[in-house]
Design a protein around this nucleic acid. Structure first.
Lengths: 103, 103
DNA sequence: TTGGGATATCGAGATAATCCGATATATCTT
DNA sequence: AAGATATATCGGATTATCTCGATATCCCAA
C-alpha cells in the first residue's frame, strides 16, 4: 500500500536544486563518475558526489536529501560511512497518476 | 504548443488552500450552489463564491487565484464585474506526463 | 581506542511565502 | 455623474524556507 502526501511532495519539489538532484539521480551514469566501480543502480549515489555536483555545502545537501526522503521521493541506504540515495520511482508514478485523476 | 514551468507549478501547488480551491473547481456543482443558473462548465466560478467557500479574505483569494493562473493551472474570463476561474485541464495532463517521464 | 572521513543535526541570518486590512480599479445601476 | 458591488493591488506583520558554518554522530582503519 502506497500512500503519498501530495502537499509535502509539492513542497519538496518547489526548489530548483532539489529538482536538479532528482534529475541527476535519474541518470547517475550520465552525471557522476564512477571510478571505483560503484553500482549506481543498486544502491544509488552517495551524498559526497551529489554535494560536489551541486555546489552547495555538505549540510545543505544533506538536508535537501532528507526533505526528498521525507516526501518519499528518494530512499537511502547506509553502507559503511556512506549513505546512498536513489529515486523511488513508484512514488513518481503514483504522483503522476494522482495529478491526472485526483488533483 | 504547451510549455509549462514545473518549478512555478510546484510552488503554486505547495499550499493547502490552493489545492482545495483546485478541488472545488474540479467539481463546481458539488461545492458551489448555482442559484442563478450560472453555467460553471462554460465560464468557471467567480471569485466571490470561492472566497466564501474558503474562509479566507477577498484579497488573499484573489492573490491565490493569480498565483494559480500565473502557473497556468487555471484560466479566467471577466464578464461584467465578475471574474470567473476554471481549471486548465491540459496543464494538469501535461504535468502528469512530465512527472512520469521527465522529472 | 584514537584519528580521520562521511553524513546528520543545530543555530542563525537572509530571503520568501502567508495572509490580512486598506485602498485602487473596473463595471453596473440609477 | 454618483453610488454600489466585484475584483485586484499594495503595504506590512508574521511565519516558513533557504543556506550557511559549526558541531555532533557514525563508521572505518591503524
Amino acid at each position: 500500500m502506497l500512500t503519498i502526501d501530495c502537499l509535502e511532495i509539492f513542497k519538496a519539489l518547489s526548489n530548483e536544486k532539489r529538482l536538479e538532484i532528482l534529475q541527476w539521480l535519474k541518470e547517475p551514469h550520465r552525471y557522476f563518475s564512477c571510478a571505483d566501480g560503484m553500482d549506481f543502480e543498486k544502491y544509488g549515489v552517495c551524498v559526497g558526489l551529489i554535494q560536489k555536483q551541486s555546489g552547495l555545502t555538505q549540510s545543505t545537501v544533506s538536508e535537501y536529501l532528507a526533505i526528498l526522503k521525507k516526501a518519499g521521493l528518494v530512499e537511502s541506504v547506509r553502507i559503511g560511512q556512506w549513505t546512498y540515495y536513489k529515486r523511488n520511482e513508484k512514488v513518481f508514478k503514483e504522483l503522476s497518476r494522482i495529478i491526472k485523476t485526483n488533483i
